[in-house]
Design a protein around this nucleic acid. Structure first.
Lengths: 241, 241
DNA sequence: TAGTGGTCTAGACCACAGT
DNA sequence: CTGTGGTCTAGACCACTAA
């Protein structure tokens, strides 16, 4: 690994997960880690900031870092797609396309994507064959045209778009609770009026241009989102219930 | 402000919010900011990392930082309590105690708090008089005894505990969706079986000892949680729907 | 009081963007 | 190419913890 601080973070993380530093234990000091990895103290600090943002350790001035817990869920950092996330959890991701249409944007879609014409995809997402989420995504036309040419049942759209040179840089997610509509219930094979976890997601490229605007609805019993925070850091994790 | 990087972050944040750098604009380079604030480049980088974690700007190697948005919800960083958050949103926080009992811990409570005897508080939280959340919190006995001695209707428990020397350091939150029980509906004055946003929250002190374990249920239409993330950062925000 | 983490500096080299 | 952000170093001082 060419980046030293990532290497240090990975080794300390591995040591924690291996039980060398169980929950409640204290990590070695920054100076000791710097000496033993042969890097400067600043590099160690960068590594440990990563671990703190993962909720793995906590920090207090004057005292050595405390191990909070072993990593149990896969991180949602780094803008993971559903497929990547599912595979990281040891599940088999799947998708069933319900509809893909090219049409005029609704007012919300127009505002979020800054365009009047969109492609709209409705897809049921499966975890090892079990339906857990409905994805209703609007794409601007230049992205939607690429999506329309894919096999959305078997491919990861995100991954395929990246291979085609589309770069996902930032996302904003808004989580709330909604009640399943009749269509939701039919697609997810659950009771009508069951509670669903709603995620609005707006993803942009490095220039800030919108790449997708999506409303995803997760089965309440199947998926949950976890957030760690401390005084200066916090992190979102998506996990199974 | 004695801490230089916070001062720089605050000034740049204010400039963005004032419209000096509208969404889509580029910030000055790190060197320019360092020169104009009379600090080293490292200090500017620390400030800008804060702004990136708030979802205010994005970063790309080789190019100046891009302003993502101006609209600001109040941050959920720094472990804001319901009362602090409400006030920051311009709303009047309130609480109505439904029950406060001292009893044996359930298996989950015992596991989360690492003790057999607890205090359990049920409270309806109000935003300017409107019920938006039910809080069902378990405290270990030494904390619960303090809570029992408070006026939980008018005081912020978190704030009062801090005044008494209890230090909140870390929290883990898990978000999901549930259906309102008959009691939930009665307390929140909503329809039975309405969807609620469920937040499990476990808060610990600087030594990693559990201070509270809570299940909070938010009215789906009233409150939402927002997360920003980019390749290396992400941030949770709690906001009104 | 000794050790630890938090902040800050000054300088260096590199990968990448925009031209 | 030049300028920018990403990484890294070596050293310094301070605030705080813990013994």
């Amino acid at each position: 690994m060419s980046i030293a601080y990532r290497q240090v973070a990975a080794e300390v993380r591995a040591a924690v997960e291996a039980g060398d530093y169980p929950p409640g234990a204290r990590l070695p000091s920054e100076s000791e880690l710097a000496r033993s990895y042969g890097v400067a103290r600043g590099t160690v600090r960068q590594a440990l900031a990563t671990l703190a943002s993962e909720g793995l350790v906590s920090t207090r001035r004057g005292a050595r870092r405390l191990v909070l817990a072993r990593q149990r869920l896969q991180g949602f950092n780094e803008l993971r797609s559903f497929s990547e996330w599912a595979r990281a959890m040891g599940e088999r991701p799947g998708g069933r396309v319900v509809a893909l249409v090219r049409r005029e944007a609704s007012p919300t879609e127009a505002e979020q994507l800054d365009t009047d014409r969109i492609y709209h995809l409705t897809r049921v997402r499966l975890l090892s064959g079990r339906p857990v989420m409905i994805e209703r995504t609007a794409y601007p036309e230049h992205i939607g045209a690429l999506v329309a040419s894919m096999n959305a049942e078997s491919e990861s759209i995100t991954q395929r778009l990246q291979e085609l040179g589309v770069v996902f840089a930032n996302a904003a997610h808004t989580l709330g609770a909604v009640v399943a509509t009749a269509e939701d219930a039919r697609l997810l094979d659950i009771r009508p009026r069951a509670p669903l976890l709603r995620e609005w997601r707006r993803t942009t490229d490095p220039d800030g241009a919108a790449l997708e605007w999506s409303e995803d609805r997760y089965v309440g019993e199947a998926v949950a989102f976890t957030v760690h925070n401390s005084v200066h850091q916090n992190t979102l994790i998506r996990g199974l219930t």
